[in-house]
């Protein structure tokens, strides 16, 4: 479904990604793990079109999307939940969700998508008239995921959805992610919470210093020496 081939990316003069390649098949739940500053977020920015790569290729469902505009990429079915959620705090929960369905095709099915999001996150329905700025951290994360689902994505990119949340909430969020995946949405999950991510996913890539240094099934990676040493102690 998504193929990334030999992508190099720069922030100014600083090279952040070195020949990154990865593939995700339809319906998969794949994790991208690695330490702080490894280039996980950068990889998502490149996929979403926010940071055009210097070289390499990105293909999504047979189309070349390497230098496509970010809004076109959303229209093609890739939606990202950025780090920290970045909900629109000055707007209500409902307005945030409506903005998720900004594009014409998504707008047509807005009512249906809204029902679906409220089914997965009943808490959001209770708070729909509240300003997003008044939500707790966990609720904001739910809203960010809900907003991304409103665009009816085929591929959902999640950047550290567990960041800053209490363990119980992390478990809940991860359960919801599994449910969303079971409904047919392919997911690429970026996580620092490696053990939880590997237990959740079928497959994972390990990113270090801007390079892919390992890949395999969750269980394979849990026994992968450098992963054990680096993340699991």
């Amino acid at each position: 479904m998504l193929e990334i081939e030999g992508v190099d990316a720069f922030y100014g003069d600083l090279q952040a990604l070195w020949g990154v390649s990865l593939r995700i098949e339809e319906g998969e739940l794949v994790a991208l793990i690695g330490p702080n500053g490894a280039g996980k977020t950068t990889t998502l920015q490149v996929i979403s079109g926010l940071l055009p790569p210097a070289s390499g290729r990105i293909r999504f469902r047979g189309h070349d999307v390497t230098r496509e505009r970010p809004d076109r990429i959303v229209a093609m079915g890739i939606s990202q939940v950025p780090e920290g959620g970045r909900v629109f705090t000055g707007m209500t929960v409902l307005e945030n969700l409506e903005l998720g369905a900004f594009l014409p095709e998504a707008r047509r099915d807005k009512a249906e998508s809204l029902k679906r999001v409220f089914r997965i996150f009943p808490r959001l329905e209770e708070r729909k008239a509240q300003r997003a700025g008044t939500l707790s951290g966990g609720e904001r994360q739910m809203l960010a995921i809900g907003r991304a689902l409103m665009s009816k994505p085929k591929l959902l990119l999640l950047d550290e959805p567990s960041f800053g949340l209490a363990p119980l909430l992390v478990e809940q969020i991860f359960a919801m992610i599994t449910e969303i995946n079971a409904q047919g949405v392919t997911i690429l999950l970026v996580e620092q919470n490696v053990r939880a991510a590997l237990e959740l996913t079928q497959r994972a890539y390990v990113l270090e210093n801007g390079r892919i240094v390992g890949q395999g099934s969750g269980n394979e990676l849990l026994s992968f020496e450098s992963v054990r040493r680096a993340y699991l102690g």
């Binding site: 809004d71 229209a75 939606s79 970045r86 705090t89 900004f102 998504a106």
Partner: peptide, 20 residues
């Protein structure tokens, strides 16, 4: 709403498909 979203956070606005 797209204008207000862009005022708040243009990158997040881009990620919901708004052409800034």
């Amino acid at each position: 709403k797209a204008i207000r979203a862009t005022v708040e956070d243009w990158a997040a606005a881009t990620l919901v498909g708004i052409d800034i």
